[in-house]
Nucleic acid binder design. Structure first.
Length: 153
DNA sequence: GCCAACGTTGGC
DNA sequence: GCCAACGTTGGC
């Protein structure tokens, strides 16, 4: 069992959009970074905990809790010529991009980036490190517990 | 394999 | 819109 933080731009898929889906589940399409892909493909297991993070928006921060509900499978948007995520170098036989399904378990208050930065217990979080741009990052069990506690405040 | 140029991310 | 920090591309 591991924990992850996954960024989503709310104008693409917000936590409310995800909650409105059948089974409150979204396929995590559009990841086009190898490191992030590898976390989904090689690191994630069904049942892993996910911090659902809103990025590139007026109030960046953690918007809810979720869990991984599938193993990795090919991202269908890579094969769709009309999609902005289309990848001409990907084939059905040799897909490049993988994704998992993520189910929202709880919408929370918005735990802002500023609030995260203010917590010394979270100083080592990957997302808070200078220059970090990865859309999917591992979260330690201690960081997860601390954040869950903060969300109850 | 090197590395300059270019593209992207994402907070501010 | 700015810009720091990376990642990717492609010529050599």
């Amino acid at each position: 069992m591991q924990y992850w933080l996954m960024k989503s731009e709310p104008k693409e898929v917000s936590i409310d959009d995800a909650l409105a889906e059948p089974k409150q589940t979204v396929a995590w399409t559009g990841v086009r970074n190898y490191q992030a892909r590898n976390f989904m493909r090689d690191g994630m297991q069904v049942g892993d905990g996910v911090l659902f993070y809103h990025s590139s928006c007026p109030e960046p921060g953690i918007a809810g809790l979720a869990e991984v509900v599938s193993t990795a499978y090919p991202d269908p948007t890579q094969f769709d010529a009309r999609s902005k995520y289309f990848d001409p170098k990907a084939t059905q036989e040799q897909p490049r991009w993988m994704l998992v399904d993520v189910k929202i378990t709880q919408k929370t208050r918005l735990l802002s980036l500023a609030e995260l930065r203010a917590e010394s217990a979270l100083a080592d979080m990957v997302i808070l490190r200078r220059g970090n741009r990865l859309s999917i990052t591992p979260v330690s069990a201690a960081e997860w517990r601390h954040i869950v506690k903060l969300l109850k405040k």
